[in-house]
Design a protein around this nucleic acid. Structure first.
Lengths: 213, 213
DNA sequence: TATATTTTCGGTAAATTTTCGGTATACTGA
DNA sequence: TCAGTATACCGAAAATTTACCGAAAATATA
């Protein structure tokens, strides 16, 4: 049996992930997005339906080798996400937003990749899936995903994610400050603007993702 | 059992693809765009309506030889798309850009081939489809595709993809730095230049593609 | 020091890639 | 027209990697 023991000369530069590896990576992303700190091997084991931490350990090592994660050896919760890659940035898909009514939050926020060019340099971003057609004239349709920059106010006429205390609802509207009230304009001519005396802006819409096909 | 195979000594000179090979390549591209990881031979076999993985294997080998793919031997899901080839480079079409408003990104960015000569050696490139005629005098029409090099600044008078914080819009304009303001010139005589106090350049327009017919 | 967490180790089964031998069809140059 | 060559395909076996386990050792943390 023929054998060359020099196969260590070239480190493996295959950066593609297997299905399972992507699942592990997504689990880590979700966990970090939700808790703000990385999981332990045990937490990953449970979350991934495994029964040995060694298996998780192996996955993590692989993901580090492939450049998706960074890690300090022997330390607890020492996994770090390598967030950016050239074209995409990963942000959490936090939930569904409909014309009215509360946001339907997703228990385990799914990480989704958005084109990096869509995000400004600073700020915290998240994504919401849109239900309904209240923004149809804005080019935002049912099932689109809007990318939102977290901020407490927007300029007049900007599209915002707004919380209406009086209605206990979260909605996607253009916001206009008037004298004693706030005008909310659905970007859909069939729907009428309406007014609220107080509105809590949660973020600004900075982009839209639509999946064709 | 070792044997020198003569036909491997001469690399394939004409790297054109057969119809079938293009189909295989397109399948891989689509799969990767959708799932974020490359397919196995089995998945390709099924997706391509074949019944032997060896056939797929052969196709992949050919595509690697012709420079369209890269591969690590013996690893699972280790196919990587090869961006560059002599005449064309594949870059992602990230979304639509209109006169104002947010970029409407495409969820699964389509890869499109652009002439390699259009791209400089360094830098990250992407493409945007143009909506509207604000650049009509520049020769950029509705539905054209602009090729953009990601960069944080451009020289005076260059066309740029610019984010206007004051308007929360992304737009395609010629940019001129003046004393205390930035002049944005639509290349369309019907539209007037306007001024902003701050502009975030996201990239420089390096090329235009138009598909007739 | 006790406890939590990571790392190492040896081993199994399943998934995946690679190799091998062979068939059919279309094109190409002599 | 005929031999030579490239493409496209099959099925099965061999080789290799991947995913997983459980337990013990090593190292951090409180």
């Amino acid at each position: 049996m023929y054998q060359v023991d020099e196969k260590n000369t070239i480190p493996n530069m295959h950066k593609t992930l297997t299905k399972r590896q992507k699942e592990v990576l997504d689990f880590v992303r979700k966990f970090v997005n939700k808790k703000d700190y990385p999981p332990t091997l045990e937490e990953m084991r449970d979350g991934l339906g495994l029964s040995a931490v060694s298996t998780v350990h192996q996955h993590i090592e692989t993901l580090v080798e492939k450049g998706y994660l960074q890690k300090s050896e022997n330390y607890s919760r020492a996994i770090e996400l390598n967030r950016k890659n050239k074209h995409f940035t990963t942000i959490p898909l936090l939930g569904m937003i409909s014309a009215g009514g509360p946001i339907e939050a997703i228990r385990n926020p799914e990480p989704i990749d958005v084109p990096s060019g869509m995000l400004s340099k600073n700020g915290e971003f998240y994504a919401l899936k849109v239900r309904g057609n209240s923004m149809i004239d804005e080019g935002i349709f049912d099932n689109d995903v809007v990318v939102v920059r977290q901020q407490p106010a927007v300029d007049n006429g900007e599209s915002a994610v707004a919380y209406l205390p009086d209605k206990d609802a979260i909605t996607l509207k253009r916001v206009y400050q008037e004298k004693n009230r706030i005008k909310l304009v659905p970007a859909n001519k069939k729907m009428k603007p309406f007014y609220e005396k107080s509105v809590e802006v949660q973020g600004k819409v900075v982009g839209v993702l639509r999946k064709y096909g």
